[in-house]
Design a protein around this nucleic acid. Structure first.
Lengths: 192, 192, 192, 192
DNA sequence: GATGAATGAGTCTTCATTCAT
DNA sequence: CATGAATGAAGACTCATTCAT
């Protein structure tokens, strides 16, 4: 193994841990997830996890960062579309396509934020809030480009609707809620 | 102390525990709440809790039942209004009036459902779903009375919006989100 | 078991833990002593230790308190002697009588203070210092009664000599150092 | 880099590790010092430490050896003085000049010996004892040259006083104890 | 029923030591 | 020799649950 391969492997392990943290925490929640769970999912010995993340909270922060990375990927992709309305509609369609995941585990960011907001220390609640704000800001930017009078309020409405429908789909174990509400949102976007 | 007084006292203790469970769990989340936390809030000795609730899960179920009781109280009150549209508008205004609580801890039912849905066993996830369904059904009933074509879908939209705005208010620590989105919902109800 | 017996038993367990903490910590040092070691010595299940002492540091503080209690016992006993010079001489003779213990584990208070002073947080270093100050003050009081011009300095000399001879006896594993240095101190006291 | 330079560099690294071990262990104690602490202080990668010292105990032994080396330096220097009484007085004055260090961390050798004597295996306790014996023997030699009847006992008294005053200065965080007791020792040496 | 105390399984975290290159 | 990474054996601490009166 050459040096660059080793560095890659090390970076790869860190990435595996981040992805595993994001996935396992999404499925089980922060509090019900043990370091051992994440280690197992990433195929890393427990003791070794601490080489990459000094505390469980750092792993949760890494999960948040992973979700942020994914959000950036998605919005980056959408930004290539010329029409902001199309961007928003594709965003909603992406949500709909994740309906089964949402019905099983809810929105990754939303459920994480809800759980972390129960904490009083550590600042992870703020980090989760910032992640949601990132989405809100991007959405507001699209409404602004569309010439809407109050883009921030519209962003809250759209993202709020997403969070609400994810929560209901999850609570009722019914992915079709995502489909129906998603369709309504697309129609609403078209009506603006 | 007579027997009936004792029974009353015992019943009172049970009620105190349910109310404490509902409150503490709302504030701290299920996993971060210990039996001792609830016992302290209810002013009941720890060892005694188990005479009323055999497991922690039963206490969580009791918290759910307490929220159901409160929901029944609210809808029962609203049912006295002659106009179903008014009932829904008052419901939304009630949500707005709870904005500070929502910004601090989110919607009691929604955050509880989100957390319990991460579980695979015990059936508490179903119980939480049923509680939300209760609200959905009542809301759908109002839309039905209003002669709306798809009352169930409208109920999902309204309750989803509530869950979403609560989550955002909580994540961003901004109660005004409740005020603004609530106003939008009232206007929407008026427009139907 | 009656209530008073139960209270006694509970108090007895706490005392057992304090005595065990004092002994085991003296023998093994703070850092090499595990909670399990103390629990075993006190014949208490590990988990139960935390009912009485919330952290390991509290157990160490309890060991310090135990040593303070013993010091109070000793000085209280010595105070019954009419002559302050006799009190000091008996104090030294007590040290000599502990020579085997000293050769094996050093002075309980001194070794504890030396170890705790390596810490930066927690305040246990200060507590250990206060314990030593207690002995210093009592000794200074005797010198004062004897009409000595600088009782505090003499106390430092006497207690310092005790700490030094304990450390040397321990390091060289030679209890006779206590005997010889003790005899010198007694002669010195007589010469004042 | 030539071979001899490499050997020199390697030797330098070893020396850096020994010095770092002596310093860090003095400040933090053996048990609270990690290999990583020493490696960092010596600016040596952690994994590399094991090429020089196979175990942590060997590093502690190296710290002892470093203290022995320093002791040899000091006594070697003092041996150049013609008068053994002067040698002892300078020795004491050296202790006084280290008073701030003593108040913060105690006597390096004494605290190390006290901590190592809590161990049952490994022989480090014996090594620490030997180091102290080295000092005792040198001091006894001076008293012998002075024609004192019991030089060994006097050495125990002098070194014991040093250990005691260091411990008290450390426990009470008061360097002036070193100054005052040191002055007393100098006067005592003059009176012999 | 009431209560303080007891129990032990589970979790996070640290760190000496070893390994692969 | 050099080095970052790997490993696993502890150890502190928590807490749901049970027990003895």
């Amino acid at each position: 193994m050459t040096d660059s391969q080793r560095v890659q492997a090390a970076g790869a392990k860190r990435k595996r841990l981040m992805a595993a943290a994001a996935q396992v925490v999404h499925r089980q929640g922060v509090e019900r997830t043990t370091i051992a769970d994440i280690a197992r999912a990433a195929d890393v010995p427990v003791g070794n996890v601490y080489y990459y993340f000094k505390t469980k909270d750092e792993l949760v922060a890494a999960a948040l960062a992973e979700h942020e990375r994914r959000l950036q990927l998605i919005t980056g992709e959408l930004d290539r579309l010329p029409d902001p309305r199309d961007r928003l509609k594709h965003l909603v369609e992406g949500w709909i396509s994740q309906r089964d995941e949402a019905a099983l585990y809810g929105c990754p960011t939303g459920t994480l934020a809800a759980e972390l907001d129960k904490r009083e220390q550590g600042g992870l609640d703020v980090a989760a809030g910032n992640l949601i704000r990132l989405l809100l800001d991007w959405v507001a930017g699209q409404f602004r480009e569309l010439g809407q009078p109050d883009p921030d309020a519209l962003a809250v409405t759209l993202v709020g609707a997403y969070q609400g429908m994810s929560l209901l789909a999850n609570a009722l174990r019914d992915p079709e809620i995502m489909t129906r509400e998603g369709a309504r949102l697309v129609a609403w976007l078209d009506s603006l």
